[in-house]
Design a protein around this nucleic acid. Structure first.
Lengths: 271, 271
DNA sequence: TAGTGGTCTAGACCACGTT
DNA sequence: ACGTGGTCTAGACCACTAA
């Protein structure tokens, strides 16, 4: 790896220009400077950054301000610090594979008229099978719904949900549009949801799924279960979602910690 | 939501005890204090925290130290700040669904003897189809491999990869064990990988997949493509992975206190 | 011993929201 | 006018690394 010490004789030329009177905070100017150097490869993985004192002295800014920049770069995964040695450029994390489901629901491919059909919605007393899933006594009152989401009138997603019905709030069909299991649980259970667990599987369409989603039996689908817990670790809702395999795909990008970068930018934009 | 202002008359009783002489940094003690209050629900979403000055004065610590704690809580998503108003406890983000693939590869369910079989591995000149995928000229030299990963001698995962072969490094079979596409690209391409894109789909086994994975044609599988780019946005490797649907499942937790949830489940599973 | 990052202080001034 | 968080300073002392 490069042992290029970015400082040495080239100090002054490599130092960024900081406008202290700008409405843009100093730490943000410095952050952008390093973000660019690292992304363009001018600073390669393994390279050492100038020391905090170098920056402080040569730019005429406080060491604490320099430290803020470095800690934000570290949070973004772009650099790491070693006590007693210095600050170094990280290797990009290429094997961190995380698929975000929410992004996908707003996929441009899915843009168009989105509609939600409530196929069934009623209060049921749980049978043994559902009771076991929810970890509650058989015969407990539950809200039971089956919902299909369509895009340009093509069925895309089929949800079946069970939620404790301890609040006895009225069930309003309009409110169920785009409703997630957590918001349904929030509306109908006295216990507020505080945690969820989701399991994603690959499966073939079965039972009533082919008919509802208008696909062949056995056609590829994503099968996801959701379990919603309250703060006491009690299950208050359970649901399954069937995503048409020919319509949904999950995308993951990795490299530099893009989320942290986005966050930092959003925070700045909001401020 | 709760409008309980945690401060007011109860200030002193609610203030944490800080040991300034502890080897544990003050900011870490304070962070743990709030993490606990928020996880146990003593501080509920919407509640306002004491002001930075309150802490600074009543605990006898610097405001900058208090600010560090708050910024770390904010980075963890537990609180948010509003300029001119105060610091407030966030709602847990229950609908942030992210499936992490790496966790899953170390799934306890998959524990056992893991072996990697190299079905095929040679240098090829790319045909038109592969060239288009890699965005390179037809006939470019590429490393081509087909790998199957077995667990207790049961095939679980079937990978096919293409990587630019510009480095002409020797291909050592031992090194291919547990090798990701990015590390193969790193070894055999002169251009260092800097970004990857992955697409996850639900599919049915086809082509030679049923035979390799010892499953029925059409059986549910996760189908994932990976594309590796260098810093100039050029593709340097491409691969597809077929995960047996009956063996792999992706789990996602969201909300507060994820560690506690996992623990509780493990205890339940063991019981 | 000299240099590095890690923690912490006690102020300063500012922009913003509420009263 | 006042209180809030946001930015920034100019120091201090510490623990760790390396020569």
């Amino acid at each position: 790896m490069g042992k290029l010490v970015y400082g040495d004789s080239a100090d002054k030329t490599k130092m960024p220009e900081i406008d202290k009177n700008s409405f843009v905070p100093i730490y943000h100017q410095l952050f952008k400077h390093f973000e660019k150097l690292i992304n363009t490869g001018e600073l390669a993985p393994g390279d050492m950054l100038p020391t905090e004192m170098d920056f402080s002295e040569q730019l005429g800014i406080s060491r604490m301000t320099v430290r803020r920049v470095i800690s934000e770069l570290a949070a973004a995964g772009m650099v790491y610090t070693v006590k007693g040695k210095g600050t170094f450029v990280s290797e990009p994390k290429l094997d961190e594979i995380t698929f975000n489901l929410n992004q996908n629901l707003e996929d441009p491919e899915l843009a168009g008229e989105v509609s939600t059909n409530l196929l069934e919605c009623r209060i049921v007393k749980t049978d043994e099978r559902v009771s076991r899933r929810l970890g509650i006594a058989t015969g407990t009152r539950c809200l039971f719904c089956r919902i299909v989401t369509k895009n340009n009138n093509i069925p895309m997603l089929y949800k079946t949900i069970y939620s404790l019905y301890t609040k006895r709030a009225p069930v309003i069909e309009n409110q169920l549009k785009d409703m997630s299991l957590t918001s349904i649980a929030l509306q109908h259970s006295k216990n507020n949801p505080s945690r969820t667990k989701r399991v994603l599987m690959s499966s073939g369409a079965r039972y009533d799924e082919p008919e509802v989603l208008q696909i062949e039996p056995g056609a590829p689908v994503f099968f996801m279960t959701e379990t919603v817990y309250d703060s006491g670790n009690k299950t208050i809702a359970w649901g399954k979602s069937i995503y048409r395999g020919d319509k949904y795909r999950f995308v993951s990008y990795s490299g530099w910690n893009l989320e942290a970068l986005k966050k930092a930018e959003e925070e700045y934009d909001n401020a």
